[in-house]
Design a binder for these strands. Structure first.
Lengths: 135, 135
DNA sequence: GTATCTGCAAAACATTTGCAATTCT
DNA sequence: AGAATTGCAAATGTTTTGCAGATAC
């Protein structure tokens, strides 16, 4: 996906595609690495020396309000962010700290007697040891 | 469950059952309401005027280390705590903010090709509208 | 030229830490 | 007395906010 298409995605969600916004969205789109604000900032500040963390925060919150991005609380003090993609859970390795996307389908989350709950959002977090660290 | 049994549970996990510890554990055990530190503190300080939030924090972390309690990040800034109970997810109503325990069983979380991940911990968060608010 | 966007500095929180006072045995 | 526990005050770290300067159309 090139910058032109990313700009269109932002415009489609009512967001003016300024340069910082394009770069932050592009970062999330290309890397898919569930970054923290710090990770995004440190990566982009190399190419945008005047970038501030405030702008990263503001932009991410803008994306969240526009339902382009979601934030994850993976059991630490700081939030992580990712482009909204449906039907996958997050596996965090206790050993190496890596975060993996795990797809799922057709999970029955509401048992009998709970059908009246209207589910709009699902977040599944898994903790354990990843294949790489098990060897 | 009375104080005597709670004291035994703490002792079984290597925790000396001081009065604040008993009260905090009892609160979690009886209420089952996924409280924040603030909620616990404000509830208990009525009966224990000298209680401090530091003690609530310290005690909860002690319980977590002993695997008696777990903390939840339900998408806000502050953590919530609950007695460890297996195989249930948390549903938070977008409207009233209530948190519900939803039981589940035999959910297949790892699809084909991901069997090498060793899952030690599962947290499922659901957001939406509860039956009470749908009416 | 006006509205929007950016970014510095300060504020606002939740949580942790250092350490002295208290409590328990 | 000695060891563990408690709690105040200060520190820490993330995220938000106020506002002035910069940018875009």
């Amino acid at each position: 996906m090139d910058s032109q298409m990313i700009a269109e995605q932002l415009l489609n969600h009512g967001i003016k595609p300024s340069y910082p916004r394009l770069q932050i969205y592009k970062y999330l789109y290309m890397k898919r690495n569930h970054p923290t604000v710090d990770i995004i900032y440190n990566s982009l500040v190399k190419e945008m020396p005047t970038l501030s963390k405030t702008t990263v925060y503001n932009t991410l919150n803008l994306f969240i309000d526009a339902h382009l991005v979601t934030s994850l609380n993976l059991d630490e003090n700081e939030k992580r962010y990712e482009i909204i993609i449906h039907d996958h859970s997050h596996f965090k390795c206790e050993n190496c700290g890596n975060i993996y996307d795990i797809p799922y389908e057709n999970i029955q989350l509401l048992p009998e007697g709970f059908e009246d709950f209207q589910v709009n959002e699902v977040q599944i977090f898994l903790g354990g040891i990843c294949p790489h660290c098990k060897k």
